[in-house]
């Protein structure tokens, strides 16, 4: 089963930096958009050049109140079409379809203190978390690493909002975010959240683990856009349909293209909703999700179709 969807109109489209475009989305048909919880994302359906793309974007702080959603989209040099479409084609007044919010990166509400770490566009869920914690009067600190103040989205707004609780690190000014200097001094019962490039997440977690932080206190926004790969054939046993999964297309997207509805929530390999039984695989399953355990991967009879692929000729799925 997939999420409830809403038709929304783009009411504001603003370049907040040369590479980040902020979109404000309001209901096109009078239906009320529910409030979002901090850390939630929405799946946006984009009709780009005759292709349907569904991308997950974190909902930023103004979405918490409901009624309207805001997202911030980075123009990606490796775009599969989504971010380029948002930057070059989408105009105020256009309509889109968005899913109800889904939260795979929630605040740990029992934490005694929250350490928030963001790199670049990873600020989108982190800023919503900071907003919620500030509103709740909770104990938190916000660390935000950017290439330069001009390239970092929302720097000034966040500094005004979070003042002494926030530290900004600009590589242009030779400022480095050193997590190993932050983690040892936090009170027992603290939780750390990080969103940013994968290598940043890895480095932050490595520093926290080295300082003795338990896994249970470390949280990262894990989902990412599916990377392409060599084309392969897919056959759907129950619906009797087949197609070829293209180089720049995910297995889930190919299945949707031929009119078969498959369940999904995050489209980024994190939630487990799109798990699918493999009936036959002529080739090697290329697991790229964060959900299946090593044992489940070895068993080879399940695949997360939003991220993972086949290295080989043909995959037969129970769909």
């Amino acid at each position: 089963m997939s999420a409830t969807r809403y038709t929304v109109r783009v009411t504001e489209a603003e370049a907040v930096t040369p590479h980040v475009r902020r979109l404000r989305l309001e209901p096109a048909d009078g239906a009320a958009l529910p409030p979002a919880s901090a850390g939630a994302h929405t799946v946006v359906t984009l009709e780009a050049n005759g292709r349907t793309l569904r991308n997950s974007y974190s909902l930023t702080a103004p979405s918490l109140a409901g009624g309207a959603y805001e997202i911030a989209v980075l123009r990606s040099p490796t775009s599969r079409g989504g971010s380029r479409f948002v930057h070059e084609r989408l105009r105020e007044g256009d309509t889109l379809s968005v899913s109800a919010p889904v939260n795979l990166f929630p605040l740990h509400r029992l934490a005694r203190h929250h350490v928030l770490v963001a790199g670049g566009i990873g600020i989108t869920p982190i800023a919503a978390m900071a907003e919620e914690l500030s509103r709740l009067g909770a104990s938190y600190e916000l660390h935000y690493a950017v290439r330069s103040e001009a390239a970092g989205a929302f720097c000034r707004d966040l500094e005004a909002r979070h003042a002494s609780r926030m530290r900004l690190y600009s590589s242009e000014r030779q400022e480095r975010l050193r997590v190993r200097e932050i983690v040892p001094h936090q009170p027992l019962g603290s939780h750390l959240y990080v969103c940013g490039p994968q290598r940043m997440i890895d480095a932050v977690f490595a520093d926290a683990r080295a300082a003795g932080w338990p896994e249970a206190n470390l949280h990262a926004e894990r989902f990412e856009a599916p990377a392409g790969g060599d084309p392969f054939a897919v056959r759907l046993a129950r619906s009797g349909k087949s197609t070829t999964v293209g180089e720049h297309e995910s297995l889930l997207e190919a299945i949707e293209r031929i009119g078969v509805e498959a369940p999904y929530l995050c489209r980024g390999g994190a939630c487990g909703e799109c798990i699918c039984d493999v009936i036959e695989a002529d080739g090697e399953l290329d697991h790229r999700d964060h959900f299946l355990s090593p044992e489940e991967r070895r068993a080879g009879d399940k695949i997360m179709i939003c991220m993972s692929r086949l290295k080989g000729r043909e995959l037969v799925l129970d769909l």
């Binding site: 029992l110 027992l188 019962g189 249970a216």
Partner: peptide, 8 residues
């Protein structure tokens, strides 16, 4: 009650 979870 002091927030210790899991492997802590």
């Amino acid at each position: 009650a002091c927030g210790i979870v899991g492997d802590g």
